[in-house]
Design a binder for these strands. Structure first.
Lengths: 251, 251
DNA sequence: CGTTAGCTTGATTTTCATCAATACTCGTGG
DNA sequence: CCACGAGTATTGATGAAAATCAAGCTAACG
């Protein structure tokens, strides 16, 4: 498909092989996330303008996209793969604040710098716009803001659910809750649920759930001992007792 | 296990002394939060329409406004006072997901029911709209969605900061961080910062920070023993050593 | 194969929750 | 005005959950 010049560029000290290619032609109409992304509500005219101003970005697993504090000049829609968003304390403690999946966007900032770090969890491709282009297009297409508001509101709802998990759940509940939400997403995206793929490392899971890797590991083995799940591989889970898992996940 | 944190009132069925009055005349132009609320961007025409469709709601401290699962038919802007948003686990564990201050709004839901509980932290007055009125007005005033997007984005940023606190900070860091953010807000709102008022109970602080009331209390006394703060009253704090407090708050 | 990064398991310590008692605050009625 | 009582906050003793420290695994890759 589209060939791109691949380059290794340090982004703020972060080494990432990130390839970019400007696109010719009318990709937007045939975009894989056409029906789900913020641009789903745009008419053909606006889509044509988007086609002018977007760029495709390809990331390898673990590549950084942007960092907290960088100038927020770009805005991205995820086409494929997944990103993680994280925040750090000065001494290195990390909290993953969310995962970004195909159709969702990242990089919309309240101020003029990004407020978190975005990195690729897997290989990923993204559709990139400059914030100024986006604003321009948005002004002529008010339904875009309304769509983005709805999507942001969804993200906020998830964030609040996650606060309940972080502040009030115990380790087994956190893990169970994590697994059920992965299961939901996988089945929503027509991906296999048995075994379920865990696309992220134990460290990522730990930093997402507010635990250590040791506790994550121990909790998995405990759930396994309790016959609630099985771990055919480190990165695959299959659920034996869904009742019990859901029970735990609810708190 | 204590199931009920607010023993005073049966919350189910929303027992609350809540007074409503439909408004005559053109309040919107003179509204106390005119320059800060989502309606700040509206023109006179739209304001006139808002005047038609809004209602004032007055809440006493601890009154409930809505509960998780209720039909999300109304939308509110806080005029004065403060609300808390919370989520519950089935066994009663509670997480406060945020506080809502004058100028901010509550009740915008991704789906058709509310996703959290909203209660008055202090006496409060709110401006109420039906969601359908709001949508109608929004369709003719696209800048409204854009303003609401910006405000929601701000809230999302706060939510993510709070996830870092909940998942990765220790009790003294949580308390210090809580105090510095209260100080910031108080000074932004031209309210006294020394002593700083704590408008919420220990239970609210605990449920906001993911701690127990005992740990909150002990942490306050420890900060006091370390001469970082003083507690002239239970609900007032004054900071003796701002350096140290900020140091702690940063992690 | 050997090396390494990631994962698991075990022993110990730390932090915070829980349980329990005591003190403070404020409103009410004697 | 004081005494009482309910609600709220503090303090203390103990326990449990999870973090930390420290080896061992396991699997992927040269």
């Amino acid at each position: 498909m589209n060939l791109s010049r691949s380059q290794t560029e340090p982004v703020n000290g972060m080494v990432c092989r990130r390839s970019e290619a400007s696109t010719a032609g009318s990709f937007c109409q045939n975009c894989v996330v056409r029906t789900r992304a913020f641009c789903a509500v745009l008419d053909d005219d606006a889509l044509a303008r988007l086609d002018q101003s977007h760029t495709i970005v390809n990331l390898d697993s673990e590549d950084g996209l942007f960092m907290e504090g960088d100038d927020a000049t770009s805005f991205f829609t995820v086409l494929s793969g997944a990103l993680r968003l994280s925040k750090l304390l000065p001494d290195g403690r990390r909290q993953i604040t969310g995962f970004v999946l195909p159709g969702e966007f990242v990089g919309l900032s309240a101020g003029d710098t990004y407020v978190d770090n975005a990195e690729a969890l897997t290989e990923a491709s993204l559709c990139r716009f400059t914030v100024s282009d986006l604003k321009r297009i948005g002004q002529d297409n008010p339904e875009m803001d309304s769509q983005m508001l709805a999507m942001t509101n969804n993200t906020l709802t998830q964030a609040r659910d996650h606060m309940l998990l972080l502040g009030r759940m115990k380790a087994p509940e956190k893990i169970a809750s994590f697994l059920t939400s992965l299961l939901d997403r996988a089945s929503a995206a027509d991906q296999p649920t048995d075994p379920l793929a865990l696309p992220m490392s134990r460290a990522d899971i730990a930093d997402y759930l507010g635990l250590t890797i040791e506790t994550v590991s121990r909790t998995f083995t405990r759930l396994k001992a309790d016959k609630i799940i099985a771990l055919p591989e480190h990165n695959r889970v299959s659920v034996n007792n869904m009742e019990a898992l859901v029970q735990l996940a609810e708190g």
